[in-house]
Each structure stands twice: as structure tokens, then as C-alpha cells.
Design a protein around this nucleic acid. Structure first.
Length: 721
DNA sequence: CGTCGTCTTATTTTT
DNA sequence: TAAGACGACG
């Protein structure tokens, strides 16, 4: 028997070897899901049931796709080429490029980012006479996205899907107009990639048949996070041979806000009659207390498919059941950050690798106090999934230049860089260009005789530039073209002159863009890569603490996981409590479950009594999730311990906590306590200025002598030394 | 047309 | 608080 099969446990093996017919693998956290998927893929190939190009494997993130590709390559003993392996969006794009005409697009269509989308939508809303203050374009955009998530083209949107009160009942008409504009500028937004692809399969049986011939096996990762279009797309592709294997965990469904429908996984058996279900329940990752905590927490959700994780970690028994989950109450977020920093230091001293430590937060703004603390103590860290590489302004600018060079009709790209760097083509010039372009029915870059004087010259110079860059692109390739653009457009000069601290980083980013560009044969391929895949992996290497949102942590694991900010109103989030009812609360709980199950050996949950909120402070109660953890797997400690106990017994008035400035008497205010002991003559510590001596005070301000000089600052910025 | 200052407003989660 | 929008001035 093949040794790759021998390495699996019986349930995993069943999941790998059940090749014919629909199969749902319910894989709990840490049960070897990725291993099953990749082994299954390799098994299909090694048993010669299909060629690599006949298997379609879909993941949610690029990271997962990359990891799968690497693992498969390792199992096959060579690079895995020609696979249909990627994210839903990447595969959708690939499909759409092949059949662009069927969606009313040219094959070289652009993929828009959110800026472009709004720039397209805004004027349409204005034309409809909508007040953009009362109806934010983002809100309508979100509505359109949700429709796309559900596979609804404008024609398919029924009055039942529409809300007559929203944007004065214009939503559907604006959606149709928006789609027309997209086609007019030969562009697709993110949602279109799957919507168009699915629509093509629905409307063109010949194309569908082609894919049925082409693709024999389908593998789907994170099935619990698929939305309706993704489901429709998969079902269409799978309907001929029905060899579809979906792997997922309903307890880890955390993307409903993005249109994901847990129902997809819950009704798999009805969708694919005769489907088999395999449950993976042996958890190889976490200690018994962590699993007990996670299990107890998630048991408060209803409507689960039901799985019981059992500890199977090698040596789990030998480690005396492992450390209990720590729950620590603290006074405020700064203290929380200090606690985490101290513990990280202690772990480091004890020989733990920083790469095995993660801080997982609910919302991205929470990362700040931790970053400040880690910087102050010189603990290397990385923020995972923050600003993506492609989302940085300079990258978008450079890409817009490339897009406008490659596609003279790409008005959105052209508009973006028209006056970047400043060349005297401001709002007024743009307005005139737009009017003329509209009247003459030509792209912006083809407008003539719309401007006069200086602006005219600047515009001609820019057009001459593009003509030159197009020539360079054709003759010398994209890398030299990019270099010419940056030099000749004045963009490089603009950055060099920029004395702000970010400027050097921006220049670095552009160099990185050039390096990435060099790896692509065509500019078209590169542009797709950039909008679909490109990630920010600087800092990826090295021994660093990982700092990220809970959402970004799915699929990862660490020895030690810090879970700060478990307070009602923050986690579960206020909006989940106010809107969406039980469903949202359950999703928050699944998020907590995901967080806990990232930990192999240690999980440290913390909550604070006072959290920074805009400029002021708000008191907060411990998260209700904390009381859902089993007492015997948890150890409580911390300076806010008493408050926690009182708070948990108090009536549930949580909804008011964040929206009103009420201070609950049972929660001590960290400010008052801190402010008192700092008197004239006291030694204090400041994050930036270091140690100093207080020489005076007035109201809430202190006068402090630092080595670098005397400062007047808010007492809240210094700590007693 | 561009710059500077004031004012507002926002904090979920992202392919 | 802090970043972004917007309006008044040069």
C-alpha cells in the first residue's frame, strides 16, 4: 500500500479514498483537513484517474492555494503545473478571460478595485438625483455585491430582493446602469468574476459541456464559507460527473457578512443526493483543556451539524492534560498590551520561538496598542493581512499607469493618474475632458480640443508619454516600460522629493513591483496577478510575533495564542448584538471558536474594564463568551477579577454600554486610579520620550523633564516609572 | 489650480 | 485621536 495512505487515520483515509460521487468532509479544527485535501488530490493523480488538468481545486485564500500547490508538488515529486487550482475569484477570472465575449466583454478586460467601483457608481447616483450624504455610495455598492454574491444579475433581481426604501427604490436600476458602465469601460469588478462565469455556464450549454469534458474531479476547501454564486458555479461544473468533494466545518463559518451562506454546507446532502459524509474528529493540534474550552463555547450554538473533537495530539496525555486556558481581567487596553508584552518576553526567555506566538484581535484597530508595546520593547512582530500590497496608493498608481498604457480605453486608470504627480490637470480639466469624451463618445485619452493653454500642453505631454510608453512596452517589455513610466511621468521624482517618513517605503514598494513584474511573461498576466493574488509578504520571514484579526487567522496555528478584547460590545461586536439577532451572535461565537482552536499549547484570553474609544474611555463588561467556557478548563486571574464576577451577575444591559457615556460604578476607572499617584517629583515613563521627572501639573496635564527636553503632556500618556 | 487650515466623522470582519 | 473631506485663500 502506498505510504502516503498509511500515514492517515481511518477517517482521513476514508475521505481520501471515497473518490466517486459527492462527498462532504466535515473537518473540525486541527483534524488534518489540508492533509486530506492534498492527499486526495495526489491520490487521484497517482491512481491515474485523472490528469492534473482534469482536477479543479478551489480554496478561499491565496495562501491556502499556494500551500496546497506546494504540498501537491512535494507529494508528486515535481512542480505541479497546469492545475486548475486557485481561489474562487482567480479561477472565475481565468474562465471569464476564455469566454469574455459571452459576458459582453473584451478578453483584455480590467479587474477593478474598490476605488474604481465607487468612481463608476457615484456619478450614476448623482444622475439619479440622490444625495450622496444621505445615501453613501458604499452602501449601495455593498447591496450590489450581495446581489452578485447570490448570483443575481440585474435581470434576476426580483422586487422581493429589493428594498423600496433603500436609495429611494433606485437600487435595481442603478445596479443595471452600473453593469452597463462596467461593460462600456470593458471592466469587471470582483463579484463579476464569478457572476459572469456562472452566468456563462448557465446560458451556454456548449461551454458547460466543454468544462464537463475538461474537469473530472472537484475539490473545495472551506465549503462553509461559500456564497450562493460559488455554490451555483460548483454545482454547474459538478453536475455531469458528480465527483465533488467539499471540505468544511460549519463551526468555522465566519463570513456571512460577505455573503457566505452556512446553509450551503448544512444542506449538502439535499443538493447532492447520495452524498456521503465523513467526519474528521481527531484533533492533532491542541491540548485537552483548549479543546474542552472550545467545545463548551461552541455548544452554545444551535443548528450545528455536530462534531465532537477528541484530543489526539501525540503526547497529549503525557503533558498532564496541558495548561488551562487563562482568562485575565485588566483595567485598560494599555495594561492589556503590557500584560501580553510581558508574557511574550517571558516565553522568549524560556526559549520559545516568537513565530509560534500570535495575538488575535476582533477588529483591526485593536492592533495598535499591541504594536506600540512591541515596538517599545523591541519585540519583532508582523501584522498579517493589514494593508495588502496592491492596496497601497503608490502601487495602485503604478498599476493605473500600466493599465492605461496597455489599454488606451481604460478611463478609470487614466483618471486616476491624470494629475498624479501634479501636472496642472485638476478637477476643472477633468470635468472638461469628461464632457468632451462623452460628447465625442471616445475614451478620455482620445479626447481632442477640450482644453486650452497650459492645461492643453500638460495633457498633450501626458498623451505623448503614453504613446512613448506603449512603444517601449511593445519593443522592450513591461519592466523597462514601468521604469520609463516612473522616470518620465515625474512619479519617481515626486517620491524622491517627498520628505515624509513613508516615502522611502513607497519607493521600495515600487521596486518590489518591478521585481514581481519581471516574473511575468505578459503584462496582462501580471495585472491579473496583482489584482487577484498579490500579497504583502514583507516581514514574512524571521522569528516574529504574528498580529492579526481573527478572520485572518483561520487556517493557521500557533503554540501560544493571545485573545485580547473579550468584552461585550467589542467581542461579540456591538453590531452583532444590535442587528442580526441570534444568527450574528452565533457567528461571533464561531469566531471565538476559531480563535481558541488556533492554539496548540496555550490560550490566553483577556478582557479590560476600560477601553479607549475615540478620544475618551468606555467601561466594558467581560464577554459573555467567557462565561461559556468550562470552569475546570479555565484559570481566572488579573486585577479586574472582582469586577468580572460582579459584572457577570449584573443584569444584561450591555446594549447601552457603548452607546451611552454611563460609567458603571462596579467597574473602576483606570484613569482616575492612574492619575492620582503621579505627583510633582515622581519618575515617569513615556513611550516616545523615555524616562523623566514631573516638575509641575495643571488640570489633566503634567510638565515633565525628559532627557530630550521639557514637555507638557496629558497625564494619561505617562506611566509611573 | 494648489495649498493650507478647519471640520467632520468613523471602527468589524476581506476574496 | 486621527485621517479624510471640504472650503477659503493665495
Amino acid at each position: 500500500m502506498s505510504d502516503y495512505l498509511a500515514r492517515l487515520n481511518p477517517e482521513q483515509r476514508l475521505a481520501v479514498e471515497t473518490l466517486d460521487g459527492p462527498l462532504l468532509v466535515l473537518a473540525g479544527a486541527g483534524t488534518g483537513k489540508t492533509r486530506v485535501l492534498t492527499t486526495r488530490f495526489a491520490h487521484i493523480l497517482l491512481t491515474k484517474r485523472a490528469w492534473p488538468s482534469q482536477v479543479l481545486a478551489v480554496t478561499f485564500t491565496n495562501k491556502a492555494a499556494r500551500e496546497m500547490r506546494e504540498r501537491i508538488a512535494a507529494m508528486l515529486g515535481g512542480p505541479a503545473e497546469g492545475l486548475w487550482l486557485g481561489t474562487f475569484h482567480a479561477l472565475g477570472a481565468r474562465m471569464l478571460r476564455r469566454h469574455a465575449a459571452l459576458a459582453g466583454l473584451e478578453p483584455g478586460f480590467s479587474i477593478l478595485d474598490t476605488d474604481d467601483q465607487l468612481r463608476l457608481l457615484k456619478p450614476l447616483m448623482q444622475e439619479a438625483g440622490l444625495d450622496l450624504h444621505r445615501f453613501p455610495p458604499q452602501a449601495l455598492m455593498a447591496r450590489i455585491q450581495r446581489w452578485k454574491d447570490r448570483g443575481l444579475t440585474p435581470a434576476r433581481v426580483t422586487p422581493a430582493d429589493d428594498d423600496p426604501d433603500f436609495v429611494q427604490g433606485h437600487a435595481r436600476a442603478l445596479y443595471a446602469a452600473y453593469q452597463q458602465r462596467l461593460a462600456a469601460v470593458n471592466a469587471a469588478d470582483f463579484g463579476d468574476l464569478l457572476l459572469h462565469a456562472t452566468e456563462i455556464l448557465r446560458n451556454h450549454p456548449d461551454v458547460l459541456a466543454e468544462y464537463h469534458r475538461l474537469i473530472r474531479y472537484i475539490l473545495v476547501d472551506e465549503y462553509q464559507d461559500t456564497n450562493l454564486v460559488q455554490y451555483l458555479w460548483l454545482r454547474l461544473l459538478a453536475q455531469a460527473h458528480r465527483n465533488i468533494c467539499c471540505v468544511g466545518d460549519d463551526d468555522q463559518s465566519i463570513y456571512s457578512w460577505r455573503g457566505a451562506e452556512v446553509e450551503n454546507i448544512l444542506r449538502f446532502e439535499q443538493d447532492f443526493p447520495g452524498a456521503r459524509i465523513v467526519r474528521l474528529e481527531a484533533n492533532y493540534r491542541s491540548t485537552a483543556p483548549i479543546l474542552a474550552a472550545a467545545a463548551s463555547l461552541i455548544s452554545h450554538n444551535e443548528g450545528r451539524l455536530g462534531k465532537t473533537l477528541r484530543p489526539a495530539r501525540p503526547g497529549a496525555e503525557g503533558e498532564a492534560d496541558g495548561e488551562k486556558v487563562s482568562v485575565i481581567g485588566l483595567h485598560d487596553s494599555d495594561e492589556e498590551a503590557r500584560m501580553v508584552g510581558l508574557r511574550i518576553e517571558a516565553l522568549r526567555t524560556a526559549g520559545h520561538s516568537l513565530a509560534e506566538i500570535a495575538i488575535l484581535v476582533r477588529a483591526s484597530f485593536q492592533t495598535r496598542p499591541f504594536e506600540e508595546r512591541l515596538i517599545a520593547w523591541a519585540i519583532p512582530y508582523r501584522v498579517v493581512g493589514g494593508l495588502r500590497f496592491y492596496e497601497r496608493a503608490e502601487i495602485r498608481d503604478a498599476v493605473a499607469y500600466l493599465r492605461a498604457t496597455l489599454r488606451p480605453g481604460d478611463d478609470l486608470a487614466f483618471e486616476r493618474i491624470l494629475n498624479v504627480p501634479k501636472r496642472g490637470l485638476g478637477d476643472a480639466a477633468l470635468r472638461r475632458l469628461r464632457e468632451k469624451a462623452r460628447a465625442d463618445e471616445v475614451p478620455l485619452a482620445a479626447v481632442t480640443d477640450a482644453l486650452a493653454g497650459r492645461t492643453k500642453e500638460a495633457f498633450s505631454a501626458l498623451l505623448a508619454g503614453f504613446a512613448r510608453w506603449r512603444e517601449i512596452l511593445r519593443r522592450d517589455g513591461s519592466v523597462l516600460c514601468l521604469r520609463a513610466i516612473l522616470e518620465e511621468s515625474g512619479y519617481a521624482e515626486m517620491l524622491e522629493k517627498d520628505r515624509s517618513p513613508e516615502a522611502p517605503g513607497r519607493i521600495e514598494n515600487l521596486k518590489e513591483l518591478g521585481r514581481a513584474l519581471a516574473e511575468f511573461e505578459t503584462l496582462e498576466g501580471f495585472l491579473d496577478h496583482v489584482s487577484l493574488v498579490m500579497e504583502n509578504d514583507e516581514n514574512a520571514a524571521g522569528d516574529r510575533v504574528s498580529l492579526m484579526t481573527l478572520h485572518a487567522a483561520k487556517g493557521l496555528e500557533f503554540d501560544t495564542v493571545f485573545l485580547p478584547g473579550w468584552e461585550d460590545g467589542l467581542f461579540p461586536h456591538q453590531r452583532a448584538l444590535e442587528e442580526g439577532g441570534t444568527k450574528s451572535l452565533e457567528e461571533e461565537r464561531r469566531l471565538a471558536y476559531v480563535g481558541l482552536t488556533r492554539a496548540r499549547s496555550r490560550a490566553i484570553v483577556s478582557h479590560v474594564a476600560n477601553r479607549r474609544f475615540y478620544s475618551g474611555w468606555q467601561s466594558a463588561f467581560p464577554s459573555r463568551f467567557i462565561s461559556e467556557l468550562p470552569e475546570d478548563a479555565v484559570e481566572h486571574s488579573g486585577s479586574a477579577l472582582l469586577e468580572r464576577e460582579t459584572a457577570l451577575k449584573s443584569p444584561p444591559v450591555f446594549a447601552n454600554v457603548f452607546s451611552s457615556p454611563v460609567r458603571f460604578p462596579l467597574v473602576r476607572d483606570a484613569r482616575e486610579e492612574r492619575a492620582a499617584p503621579i505627583a510633582v517629583g515622581a519618575r515617569v515613563f513615556h513611550q516616545k520620550f523615555g524616562y523623566g521627572t514631573v516638575t509641575g501639573s495643571e488640570a489633566d496635564r503634567l510638565v515633565v523633564d525628559f532627557e530630550s527636553g521639557t514637555k507638557r503632556l496629558l497625564s494619561s500618556f505617562v506611566d509611573p516609572a
